[in-house]
Design a protein around this nucleic acid. Structure first.
Lengths: 345, 345
DNA sequence: TTGAAAGCGATACCAA
DNA sequence: TTGGTATCGCTTTCAA
C-alpha cells in the first residue's frame, strides 16, 4: 500500500517524443495545439500520450516560459464565519471555470499570519493575489508592491488600493444601519461582535454605526467584542453578557446575521418578545435569514457576487483587459420585523 | 496603476550571489541553512538578501531537486454546505501550521469536475492530495494510482482506500438514526435532502436509514432529493413539498442540521408543534444547533477534527512516519427534543 | 569552506 | 512541417 504511493512513474515529454519518433519540440507543439504540424504527426503523438499516461509538468512550463502560474493566492480570515465561506465560494467557482486554482490562506484575522502566508505564496509565482481586507503589515505591503502581479483587495473597499479593490464601504453600511435604528425611535443601543486585535471591516462598520447613532441623538450604551468566531453561539452568550449589566438597552446591532440569530434565540429563551422587548439587527443577509419566522432586520451584501467580481477583475487584468481599480459592490438595508417601526409607534 | 502591476522586479539567486561576492552555490547553501559556510559569508549573503528583497522561486527549487512541492490539493464538493466549510477549515489550519498550502478544488459534487481538477492539480506536482468522497471516475482513479503521492480520501470512510482514508461509516450513521426513530415509536417517516446524480455519502446515509426503518417495521413514505445546496432554504421548501402530497408523515429525517432547521421553521410557520405534530431529525450537529430553543435530534460528527485528522495523516506520510490506512473518526447520536421519546409515550 | 558544471522539463528562437 | 540549441532558477555532484 505504501509502496504504491511511493513509486513514481513520471513520464516526460522527451519520452513521449521518442516513443512517437519525433522531436521534443514537435511533441510540445502538438500538446499545445498551436499548429505547425501534420495531422499524421498529431495522431502519432497523441497516441503515445494516452499510452504512456503522460501528464505535463506545469512547473517546467512556467519556468521555461518565464510566465506566471495559474495559481491565484486567496487569503480569507476564517471559514467559520459564513460570510467568508460564501466569498471564497464565489471566487473559486469563477477562477476554476477559467482554469485557475485558488491557493488558500486562512489568516485567522492576523496581519502576521497574512504576512507569512504572502511570503510563502509569492515564492510559488502565483499569477495574482486576492486578499481579504485593506490592512497589511508594512513588510507585506512591500512584498506586494514588488511582486509585479495583479492584486485584488476585497471586502473592505480600498479607494487607494495597492492595485485593485472590490467591496463595500463598511463605514457607510454601519452608518446607514445606525441612522435607520435611530429613525425607528431607538435611543439606547448595544453592539455584539467579535474582535481580533486588528483593524478590520467589522470595526469600521461599528465606527460608522456609532457615529450615526450619536449624531442622531442616541447612545451606543455598550459594545461587546468577543474573542471568538462570528457565528451563532457567540451571538447567544454575547447577548447574555451584554444584557447582564442591567444597562438600559432597547436594541442590539450584531456583527452579522449568524450572531443576530444567536441573540434572537437568547432573547426568546429568556421570554423576551422581539421587537416588543428588544430590537435585533443583523448584518449580511445570510442564508439563515431566509427561513426565519420574522424577517431579520439586516443589511444585504451580495457575498457570492463579491467573490465573483473579485475573480473577474483578476481575470480581466490577467488577459490585459482594461479594469477599473475600484468597484463598489453595494449594500441594501433590509428593514425586517425584528426592530420596531417608527411608523407604527 | 497598471504599470505598477506589470513591472516585474524578480531578483534571482545569482544576483544575490554576485552582489555578495560569492558563488550561486554558496548563496544557495546559506539560504537553506544547511551548513558548510563561514559565519562571515552567511552575513554577507543575508545582507544582500535583505537589501535586494530576494524571494526564492520555489518552482525552480522543486524543479531542480526533482522533489515535490509543499502544495496539497484539497477537493471539496461545495462551501455552501457548512459541513464542508468546517472540514476545509480543519484541513487548512493544520496544513498551514506545517508549512503546506491547500490548493482548492470545488467539485460541485460531480466526478467530471473532480477528474478535470485532479488532472490540473497533478500537473503542478503537489506533495499530496486530500479528496472528499470515495468515488472517482475511472480515469481519475488511474491518474491517482500513478501519481505516486500520498492521497487521503475523507468523509466517506473507504475501507480499501487508494492510499489512506479518514471519515465515518455513513451507512451506519443513517442506520443508527433510523433505528433510533423507530425506537421512538415512529412508523411513517420522510426524508429531505439534496442529490447530485452522483453516489455520495448522503445517499449512503439514506440507504442505511431506510434499511433500519424498514427492518424495524416502519416505512420511509417519501424521499425528496432536491437539486440544490444542502442549506436552510432548501430544507424549508423541501419540507413544504414533502408534506404537500398529504402522505401520512410523522417524522422527517434531513440531510443535515441546516436543512432540518429550515424544516423546523416551515413547520412552525404552518402552526405545527414539534415534536407533537411532527418529528424533526437532522444530521451533523452543526453550530446552529447550539442556539436552538429545542435541542435538535441529530448525529454528532467532529468535522473540524476530521479535517485535522486528514491533514495529520498526510503530514505523517510525507515525513515517512507510519500511518494506518484507515481511520474511523466516529459519530454519536444526539437524542434531542425534536422527536418524541418512546419513554414518554 | 567554496565553486564550476550538469541537469531538472518544458518553451523560444532560429535554422532547415 | 520539423528539429537543434539555449534558457529559465535552482540544486546536485564533484573537484578544489
Amino acid at each position: 500500500m505504501s509502496e504504491k504511493a511511493i513509486k513514481t512513474s513520471k513520464v516526460s515529454l522527451s519520452e513521449v517524443a521518442r516513443a512517437a519518433g519525433v522531436s521534443k519540440m514537435t511533441a510540445s507543439r502538438v500538446l499545445r495545439g498551436e499548429g505547425g504540424y501534420s495531422e499524421n504527426t498529431r495522431l502519432k503523438v497523441m497516441e503515445k500520450v494516452d499510452a504512456l499516461g503522460y501528464l505535463p509538468n506545469r512547473l517546467a512550463t512556467v519556468f521555461a516560459g518565464d510566465k506566471s502560474s495559474t495559481f491565484i493566492g486567496v487569503s480569507i480570515p476564517d471559514l467559520g464565519n459564513e460570510v467568508f465561506a460564501q466569498v471564497l465560494e464565489g471566487i473559486d467557482r469563477k477562477l476554476g471555470s477559467f482554469g485557475h486554482q485558488s491557493v488558500l490562506g486562512l489568516t485567522q484575522h492576523t496581519l502576521e499570519e497574512e504576512e507569512s502566508w504572502i511570503r510563502t505564496v509569492l515564492s510559488w509565482q502565483p499569477a495574482g493575489l486576492i486578499l481579504t481586507g485593506r490592512y497589511h503589515s508594512p513588510r507585506a505591503t512591500d512584498m506586494l508592491r514588488n511582486a509585479g502581479i495583479p492584486i485584488v483587495e476585497i471586502w473592505d473597499l480600498n479607494s487607494s488600493p495597492l492595485d485593485m479593490s472590490v467591496g463595500i464601504n463598511h463605514f457607510d453600511s454601519g452608518f446607514d444601519m445606525g441612522r435607520y435604528l435611530i429613525g425607528c425611535g431607538y435611543c439606547d443601543i448595544g453592539y455584539v461582535g467579535t474582535s481580533h486585535d486588528t483593524a478590520n471591516a467589522a470595526t469600521t462598520r461599528l465606527d460608522g454605526f456609532c457615529k450615526a447613532v450619536e449624531g442622531g441623538g442616541g447612545r451606543v450604551v455598550k459594545q461587546l467584542c468577543l474573542h471568538d468566531t462570528a457565528t451563532y453561539y457567540p451571538g447567544y452568550y454575547g447577548t447574555e453578557q451584554l444584557l447582564a449589566g442591567g444597562a438600559p438597552i432597547e436594541c442590539i446591532f450584531y456583527q452579522n446575521d449568524s450572531m443576530a440569530f444567536g441573540g434572537l434565540q437568547y432573547a426568546t429563551a429568556r421570554g423576551m418578545q422581539v421587537p416588543r422587548d428588544i430590537g435585533i439587527a443583523g448584518w449580511g443577509d445570510l442564508p439563515i435569514a431566509s427561513v426565519m419566522t420574522k424577517r431579520l432586520t439586516s443589511m444585504h451584501v451580495p457575498h457570492l457576487k463579491l467573490g465573483q467580481a473579485a475573480a473577474e477583475m483578476m481575470l480581466a487584468r490577467l488577459s490585459n483587459e482594461p479594469v477599473s481599480a475600484c468597484r463598489d459592490i453595494g449594500f441594501r438595508l433590509i428593514p425586517g420585523t425584528t426592530v420596531r417601526r417608527a411608523e407604527q409607534s
